[in-house]
Design a protein around this nucleic acid. Sequence first.
DNA 1: TAGCATCTACTACGAAACGTCGTAGATAGG
DNA 2: CCTATCTACGACGTTTCGTAGTAGATGCTA
Lengths: 112, 112
Amino acid sequence: MEQLWAAPAALTVREVHEQLAGTRELAYTTVMTVLDRLAKKKLTERERDGKAWRYRAAAPREELAADLMRDALDRAGDRREALVRFVGQVSDEEAALLREALSQLDAQEQTG
Amino acid sequence: MEQLWAAPAALTVREVHEQLAGTRELAYTTVMTVLDRLAKKKLTERERDGKAWRYRAAAPREELAADLMRDALDRAGDRREALVRFVGQVSDEEAALLREALSQLDAQEQTG
DNA sequence: TAGCATCTACTACGAAACGTCGTAGATAGG
DNA sequence: CCTATCTACGACGTTTCGTAGTAGATGCTA
């Protein structure tokens, strides 16, 4: 359902619907409803374009993922423990990416 | 609802109910249902104790949090990007804990 | 200007999850 | 045998989600 995020720019309902037509047979109004609900949840934003609305993701997929990770961490009780367990679950590659992200953060703090 | 996790040992429905009585006025069967549903979702385990069941968390709160973080990361598309955003959201203290967790992971890999 | 196409707004409906609880029946202790 | 204690199972209202239809506004076109 959220594969609409793949799209780079703001799309109208029609465009999303057509783009989905290959993969799944959905009624036009179904797409409309979904987009509308996402907008109500602030996951998409919309702007007028003639009589139609043009929808765009409020934040990239990665930002959503990061938010969810934060939320999970917030409900953890002992954050240290949760983080230890988290890095314990993560693949080697992901651990490397994490380290990278952290040094990037350092660099930023130096500069900014 | 999941504040039942605060308890250290396996508890019977009655014990959980009594423990909750101070905070919230819940029917005995409500507690039972909840515990039972949690068990069905594998979030609690239960063992017989006389005619009663004794429930215990299948995993500590922190493990659940870590699982959720993983899930979020898995639905991210570009993991690097998601991780960068995540560490960007996190507090300084949490970043430090993360670094710590990562070095701990290193040490483990050396040893184990 | 009448009519058709296009779009939105609103409503709906079934399924699943959740919080809440009741009833029925098994079991154990006095 | 009666009563208290537990469980199993069902139930009901609410919310979320996927799906879709209908009504009404708007705009192009003949």
